[in-house]
Simulated assay, not measured.
Amino acid sequence: MNILNTLKVPDDRNLLADRIILVTGAGQGIGRAAALAYAERGATVILHGRKTEKLEQVYDEIEALGRASAIILPFDFEQATEANIAELADAIASQFGRLDGILHNAAWTYGPMPLEFHALEHWRTIMQVNLVIPAMLTRACLPLLKASPDASVIMTGDTHGHTPAAYWGAFAVAKAGVEVLVKIQAEEWEIYPNLRINALIPGAVDAPQRTKTHPGSNNRILPKPADLMKPYLFLMGPNSVGITGKTFDCQKGECP
């Protein structure tokens, strides 16, 4: 049974009221749309991204909603160390004391290429941004998640990681690893009824990364990031309590 198609997200402006949610890659695309959707429903959103100017634009959009506040957290995952990740978690702890959700949306790819052209640096960067940092950031924030009465972590998968295909190389391997990570983490969190973790595969969407990986495609005919927010709201909100360790592929109709 398709869980996300059988449960509805209430059109509730207070769905995420008083929740503290970290969104990585919040400066554009799905991350931006999710940050706005969460803030519109009452959440205080921590906006992560590499470029401060993009985060400031999203911040201004959230402020214009007049609902909840946001804070900006510029941070380059490619250059991050374990100490940097710990400092990030400490900054959140000092300001909020808890974390009610994380949307791991930040991603990086060089675009399609044969494996024979993947240099060591390609592997390091792609694995770091798409898999290693989300895992380490979740670990660093675990005390903050445990402090929440209801915390949800959403990892972003990818079609090419779910169904591997030629030329997607390290990116597909990293995203396949995301699905494995979700299953393992969910099992380890079984002793914490207030914690859950799932993966969402948004599929093809008219977003900046799609333009980078498919420059010749007519991306304008694809769904906009804002069109995909229902599953992001459902999995982040209280109606998904008890759902954990799952991967939902929107392109296969598994997302509402």
Score class of each variant (00 low, 15 high):
91 A>H: 07
113 M>D: 04
74 P>W: 07
139 R>G: 04
135 A>V: 11
99 L>S: 08
108 W>E: 04
116 E>V: 09
78 E>M: 05
110 Y>I: 01
140 A>L: 07
119 A>L: 13
85 I>D: 01
188 E>T: 14
94 S>V: 13
146 K>S: 11
86 A>F: 07
80 A>C: 08
182 V>R: 05
137 L>M: 11
174 A>N: 09
75 F>A: 10
188 E>S: 10
76 D>F: 06
84 N>D: 15
184 I>G: 14
136 M>G: 00
85 I>G: 04
126 I>A: 00
193 P>M: 10
104 H>M: 11
108 W>A: 10
134 P>F: 00
138 T>C: 00
116 E>C: 09
160 H>C: 13
128 Q>I: 00
174 A>W: 01
124 R>P: 01
79 Q>R: 15
125 T>K: 13
86 A>Y: 03
140 A>K: 03
121 E>Q: 10
172 A>C: 04
142 L>Y: 05
145 L>R: 04
83 A>H: 11
189 W>F: 05
104 H>I: 06
100 D>W: 03
103 L>K: 06
103 L>V: 15
100 D>T: 10
82 E>M: 12
172 A>S: 09
141 C>T: 06
170 A>Y: 01
167 Y>I: 05
88 L>T: 14
162 H>W: 11
95 Q>A: 12
84 N>H: 15
77 F>Q: 14
114 P>M: 07
110 Y>D: 09
99 L>M: 03
193 P>I: 14
88 L>Y: 02
157 G>T: 02
186 A>I: 09
157 G>A: 07
142 L>R: 13
167 Y>C: 08
84 N>V: 01
115 L>T: 00
116 E>L: 11
100 D>G: 05
159 T>P: 00
133 I>V: 15
139 R>F: 03
110 Y>S: 11
